[in-house]
Amino acid sequence: MIRFEHVAKRYPGGVQALSDVNFELRRGEMAFLTGHSGAGKSTLLRLIAVLERPSRGQVLFDGKNVGRVSSRQIPRLRRKVGVIFQDHKLLTDRKVLDNVALPLLIAGYSWSEIRRRVRAALDLVGLLDKENTLIPALSGGQQQRVGIARAMIAKPPVLLADEPTGNLDPELSEELMRLFCTLNELGTTVLIATHDLDLVERLGRRTLVLKAGCMIDDRSGAGAGRRDGEAGP
């Protein structure tokens, strides 16, 4: 589904965010992307959603080199990827309903269908009673969950999440990770950037580790849990 071949990304000004990253995420797979802040996790996710273009190498999405797609094709590609942003990226002057509905409005769904799906999505993230609340009236964790509802509402084949549990208490984090697992079991390919290593360990999924722009580890699900367990304090 997603394949990185010798991908490097250098930002103007000389910051080398990624250098020679190789990995593949198969359709229906779920993986965590960990590493210190500044290791290049966000850049890697941004390359998949074509929010950035690689300086070198290829990012293949469904066999297509996304570094080469024309700007005209970018919107179509982005609709296949639900992205949960660290800073939420919500419309702060709108209600929760309007924010979550955005991908469906763009796709031209009927309003009744949109209402139905928004309610279902908000129910999943536990915000059903906040449908008509303005974004600034929500806590950071609630805003994060609105972002999650928006990312998954159009049922994209791929979900990317950048620190989705950053603002949440442990219980809620666990609950949301379970939600990602459920979505994955239903067929969505999921890639989550996080530094919540405890949670990653407990879920025992494949884990990719970035360090200073290089992929230094790629642990398969079962092994990841065991190894971290041994190395633990």
Binding site: L51, P75, R79, V83, F85, L102
Partner: peptide
């Protein structure tokens, strides 16, 4: 944000 979620 619109561009991010795939608006043309």
């Amino acid at each position: 944000i619109l561009a991010l979620v795939g608006a043309t």
